[in-house]
Design a protein around this nucleic acid. Structure first.
Lengths: 123, 123
DNA sequence: CATCTAGGTTGACAGACATCTATCTAGAGC
DNA sequence: GCTCTAGATAGATGTCTGTCAACCTAGATG
């Protein structure tokens, strides 16, 4: 599994959070991609269920009952999160377990910080 | 001006960032609303132009030239950001100046932090 | 092998959304 | 008042997206 697009490069944004310097077109497209993955209530709830689950991961079978949606819809949402680099999945026999990949969320958290909060990363 | 929807309530999320505890349906809808406002490259670039502009605010006339889009499209995007509580506008004569309202972005930044980074707010 | 469960993919469809044209509103200057 | 510029709104249109039904794939079991 683990078929996902490249993660948001932290290095290209570390010293220029969006509040300090205008984003380039490429940066904005890349950031918007991840924000878009988070811009749905179901996906946010899936993400929070996965992240807060015991052991830091959750089987799809643990997730589906919390929603009044069909399996294909849950699968679709998980795929969106996966391709945005936010979660990763691992098959264990019949079951598939998902966990959160912290990098993309961390990047977003950093770019959203006020300029005096964001810590410049010294190379 | 200043016609916007209620801001994201920080208090309801401060001690339960999305990675610590499953979001409620209401919380997820509210968060998704703000993420959706940020889920567009043009809006992200507008936001970063405003935030990084001298004096922490920018006139619409300072923004439009950076895009190959018509005025109504820029107005529409600014309206989306405004209604999400991310920016606020002020008319000064013929001109309209926009600035960033930090609260919504700060909330997003906090909920996206890893559990050990998020500082619990003591009431 | 056949059968089962878990989970993913495909395609249709209704609703949401970015964009533009046309128009309107707000303010300034004469 | 009229005219101008700046910026917002309304409506049409093409594109995108959440959802489901139908179907497929991955593994386990007998």
């Amino acid at each position: 599994m683990s078929k996902q697009l490249p993660l948001v490069p932290v290095e290209s944004l570390c010293c220029s959070p969006l509040m300090r310097q205008p984003l380039t077109e490429d940066q904005s497209v890349e950031l918007a991609r991840v924000f878009k993955a988070l811009a749905d209530p179901v996906r946010l709830r899936l993400l929070s269920l996965i992240a807060s689950h015991a052991g830091g991961e959750a089987c799809v079978c643990d997730l589906t009952d919390a929603f009044d949606l069909t399996g294909p819809t849950i699968s679709h949402h998980l795929k969106v999160l996966r391709e945005a680099g936010i979660i990763d999945g691992e098959r264990r026999g019949t079951w598939v377990y998902y966990r959160v990949l912290p990098t993309a969320l961390q990047t977003l958290s950093t770019v959203l910080m006020a300029p005096d909060q964001a810590e410049p990363v010294t190379a």
